[in-house]
Every structure is written in C-alpha cells, then in structure tokens.
Simulated scan of single mutants.
Amino acid sequence: MGRIVLVGDVGGFPGELARVVGGGGHDLVIQVGDLVDRGPDSPGVLALVRERLERDRRGWVQLIGNHEWQYLDGEIFWPEPLGEDDQGLLRAWWLREWVRVAAAVRAADGEEFLITHAGLGVEAWRQLGEPVTATTAADLLNTRPREVLGSYRGPLWASAGSEVYESWLDEGTPMPFSQIHGHDQIVGFEGRTWRCGERVRQRAIVDWAARHTITRVSGGARFIGIDPRHGRTGAPQWAPLVLDGATLVA
C-alpha cells in the first residue's frame, strides 16, 4: 500500500500538472484524461507526461479522455487540433497500451473505486455485463470495447450529474462500487453554483478549495468528481485527490 495521487483534467496547463505531481518519488499518479485542449500549451503537457511514462511507467497511470479519443477514432471535434507529431504520440501511446481506459484502486479502509474519465453510468455498466467489482469493470473497459467508448453516454463522454449519477438514481439498483472521474462537474466553481438536479444536489457535498465533489448514490457507493475545470485561464486554486494507504488493483 502507498500514496496514490489522482489528477483531474489538465486541459493544456503543464505548469499546473508539474506543480501537483512534482518530480516523482514514491507516489503513484493516476491522471484521468483530457491532458490537452483549451489551455495555452497542450504540447508541453504531453512532453511532461512522456518524460514520466518513459522514466517510470509503474509510477504513472495515464487514462484516456474524450479529448484524446478524438485523435484515435478519426473524428476531431476540437477547433484547434494538435499538430501531427503530438497526434502521432497519442496514437503510439494507445498502441503500446501506455494509455488505459480505466483503473481501480482499493483505499486504506477497503473501499474500491473504479476510475475513468467521465464515470460509468448504468447503460454502459450493463453493456459490460454488470460487473460487481471495480477491478472487473476496469479490466473489461481495458479491453477497449468500441461500442462503449464511442457512446456519448459512455465513460469518456457522459455528463456527470444529468447522465451518470441520475442513471443510478433512476435505476434503483445499488451501485456495486464507488467511482472517481473527471470530465465534468455538478457545480460551477467560479460562482459556487449548482449544475445538477435537486435529488443529486441533496446527496452531494463540495470541497470548493480543492474543487472536488462527493455524491452518494444507491447502496452507499459514491462518486468523487475531480475535474478542476481549468477552462481557458486555469483554476485559481485546486488540488489533486490523494489516497494514503491505497493500492492499485487494476
């Protein structure tokens, strides 16, 4: 067991990424995708991650977000696309399996978390065969089922509050494991506003300084959202999610 540092969406801000991951050491870093776009220096982010992956892949787990996925499936949606060299780098990471779809960790208290870019809703969970552990769900996602990954309700694209969380509340089936995700948030941090329905809001608490949200759903499981929402200018204050005494299980 050790210290796992989970980093939300970076969105083209290499300085912010470098600040929270430092020079390495004994931490395991899991980054939830969306390394690129919006911010001032997406190539700089990729260069930083490349250095860490080439130096110590055991110490860095890189997940894929929808902003990386666009360069793999041939449908580029961002109006300011990466250069050909950086697009090629992402494709090479994907082919070498240096980039994964999902991870799973066990916290010191035994709680297991599935970690994906956008979270796993009921529909995608069913497409995977209704796995009952975070480890199994991560393993299945890492087989790269294209019909799941390409779906706008899937774990690279779905909106947290209106699609992922609501799907579990609508279902009534206990969510079998907790989840950590980036991609989207149920609040607007700048104005401290809510961007979700009332029943999600009633189940949520917010760490405004760290820019994390925690939302309880059925069965006692919870979602932790860690996207700091850097946008075009960068978040004025945020922190990664740190799990002390945790173990990577998938």
Rank of each mutant, 00 (worst) to 15 (best):
M1C: 14
I4R: 01
V5I: 07
G11Q: 15
G11N: 09
G12Y: 01
L17G: 00
G22S: 10
G25T: 05
I30N: 01
G39Y: 00
P43N: 13
P43A: 06
V45W: 15
L46Q: 02
L46W: 03
L46I: 10
V49I: 12
E51Y: 05
L53V: 13
D56N: 11
G59V: 03
V61I: 14
L63V: 09
H67L: 04
H67D: 08
E68D: 10
W69K: 04
W69D: 13
W69M: 11
G74K: 15
E75I: 13
F77I: 09
F77V: 12
P79C: 14
L82H: 02
D86W: 08
A92I: 03
W98R: 01
V99C: 03
A102Q: 07
V105I: 15
A108T: 08
G110R: 09
G110V: 10
T116S: 04
A118M: 04
G129E: 08
G129Y: 02
T133F: 08
L140H: 04
W157L: 06
W157R: 11
G161W: 00
G161T: 00
F177E: 07
H181T: 10
I186V: 14
V187G: 01
W194D: 04
R195A: 15
R195F: 02
C196F: 02
C196S: 09
G197T: 13
R199E: 11
V206Q: 09
D207N: 07
A210G: 10
R211E: 11
R211L: 07
I224D: 02
G231W: 01
A235E: 08
L241E: 03
G245I: 05
A246Q: 02
L248Q: 03
A250V: 02
A250Q: 03
